[in-house]
Nucleic acid binder design. Sequence first.
DNA 1: GAGTTTGAAACT
DNA 2: CAGTTTCAAACTC
Length: 816
Amino acid sequence: MVLESKETAQKERELLHTPLTWDKDSDSHTETNVVVLPLWTLDMDTPERNQISATLTKFEDSPVFNYINSLSPIKPVKSVPISQTFNSLSFSSPPSVFTSPHVSCLKESRFLRRHIPLGTSKPKVSSEDANKAHTSEETLADSTRACHNSSELQENTDRGISVEDASIELSSEHLKFSVEPQQTLKYNSCGSPGYDPPLCGNEGNTLLELPDEAAADAGYVQEGCKTDSSEGHLQKICQTEPKSEDPDCYWDSLVPDGPDMLIFNSPGEAEAFKGLMHKPLDSSIRLSDFMSVLPLSTIHNGRKMYFVDSVASGSEHEIGDHCSEPMTTATDTDQTQDNLADVVFVTSHSNEHANDQLVSVTHRAIRRRCLDFEMANVQRKNSDDNSNAGSSTSEFDERNVANEKQQLPAKLNGNFQTGILQGIGLHLNALAALKEYKGIQIENLSSGRQLSLPGSTLQISTSQEHQHLSLVPVSSERELDSSDNGLHPAEDCSQPSVYMAGEDFNKNSSPRKKKRKLETPGETEGCKRCNCKKSKCLKLYCECFAAGVYCIEPCSCQDCFNKPIHEDTVLQTRKQIESRNPLAFAPKVIRSSDSVPEIGDDPNKTPASARHKRGCNCKKSSCLKKYCECYQGGVGCSISCRCEGCKNAFGRKDGSAPVGIETDSEEIEATDKGVAEKASQKTEIQNTEDHPDSATVSTPLRLSRPLLPLPFSSKGKAPRSFVTTITSSALFASQKLGKPNSLWSQSKHFQTVPDDEMADILLGDTSPISCIKTSSPNGKRISSPSCDLGSSPSRRGGRKLILQSIPSFPSLTPHP
DNA sequence: GAGTTTGAAACT
DNA sequence: CAGTTTCAAACTC
């Protein structure tokens, strides 16, 4: 397996470096017969993963599998479990950077998948972990083939079956397993893991998305948006959402195209699938079940089936309900009416659409943060236009909720350079999205069912011609604060304008005005981008650049060079800046200590476990405003700060306790105050619990946490430092496919790594690849199980804590 | 929305 | 390394 993985990794690298020659025109094929197996993100090191891998292997060897293969002209590649969630999930965001979301995607993905987008769009995994990469590579290869052959295939593929990938996340273990069997009997078009069929422009392509992972999904979506053709599935999804009153509906809506989706001909199949879904935790079982189901559906229908990742429920998430959702069976109908329209979300209500086919799809993807190129918006065809109504297809969407937290770890295990960063970016995105997601959830979900998905905002706008679904990443903060605001689907990012390819955004005459028009203040902030006028977005002044992401439409920058088309310039500039300051792109806020006093800062003086990398230099803001990077990052000032009159609510330079905890809150604005208190208290509590031995010790939670509960709720914008941190890593990681900048990787480490460790990292003492600690707003995917850095018990505990302590993204519950 | 304030980044 | 300038975000009105 390892060998195989290595080979795959190699292939993947090659693919990444190889420009895709895919012709969009060829995409025109109407339907895609693809079965997408869940992408399993596994941690190679974990038993679960092994289990899954074994299962997959069996699967491949199984008669059913063979049968499926026989159906497709394309030779299925032997799937290899990949730990790299990066590919799809983690990376989804990262690609943005270097694969720039804008440009990178040749294809639009109708599938919200975690797969790594093909070559350009997807960051390449340079990992040393060939193992992880292995699967993805194959997938890429397949996808590539598919793309090349798409035109041909399209014609033939309508009824073809392809299994692109399966992804499963085992939330229970906090591990994510990703396996991409990549057995593509047929690729629809670009049906490669990284590849989204939609690119092919087909309506037929189905997008399966896991609601839970909306956040993650958003990432995909965004990526998908990169391409012009982004209209796809998201819109479709959106179409149904408004209609759905059922809690499930939301998720259902997420599932785009019906025809392509996994369809169950018979209720029995659906049941089987259902059962499978119900067993998210049992990867092996699921896989088997899943496999068993496939044949039937494919065979009977002769149609394309898409399986999108089924995700294991996360421990924190309450997936069960979703999983258990009865699958809707529909009668056969011709979907043909409108290729595009295929997706009808079958909700409990939607049975009317009677189709024989029952589609259940779970899609798990990591949502990309706004920073990542977010094509926050995805257009979806209006149901009217598309004929969802017309299409008789009913689709059932079943989603497993997976913890993104888990995903991250797995990803981390993968190549550090590429994978990690990307993964992080995605993760963040997902987090950002949470808030939005919640809003939807609240609005749409009436049942007590909890959604454990990372929030993503789905914005649905119905225009005469199109419905637009946009996933808008929202800052984690917002999410946290969302309770106040009530969730509003992000308007800002979702604006149609967003659909535009990111690259050309800046070219707009008045980006800023445009942006403002499109974006509402609150929401905008989540996706807020830079507004550079003179720096060309090639200096650290530029938040996007500093974060390691390309500027996208939401940006109001002028003369922007921080775009994929200027990738060389960007990279060069980056290097230049790094040459001056190796840590320039490192997270500004780093974990000061893990309960390890030796770390530079005196814990006593710096209440917050996390500290600003360099410390602030505030003179007039008293470290009570976002001018202060420490405050903005949600961390207390430390001895390294040169601030004057420090009143940082998160911890004063002089060592006084964080305001939030203490009585100084008065100094803070009322709104912020509450948040700060909560955050600080929460952090403290968690810390104490997790690390009884060191009260002052920064816990992973803190590390990651500070970012979350910041007192910025009013604006909802994530703390600058935080954003920077997250994005930077993601961005950098993804900068060059296959050639992750070492620095970037390093930067990642920095996030969670103590200063001293950072130094080591820079020196190369620590292998970035081996371990990455990431702090996510939600803290879900903060650590990779296998992370070396975390080898120390304390650290591990910290990571673990993070996961636990971090409030799961969007609590599925209606009200946070 | 325009203007001011602020402090980091960049420059010297 | 310190001082100054530039820059864009944060903030205010």
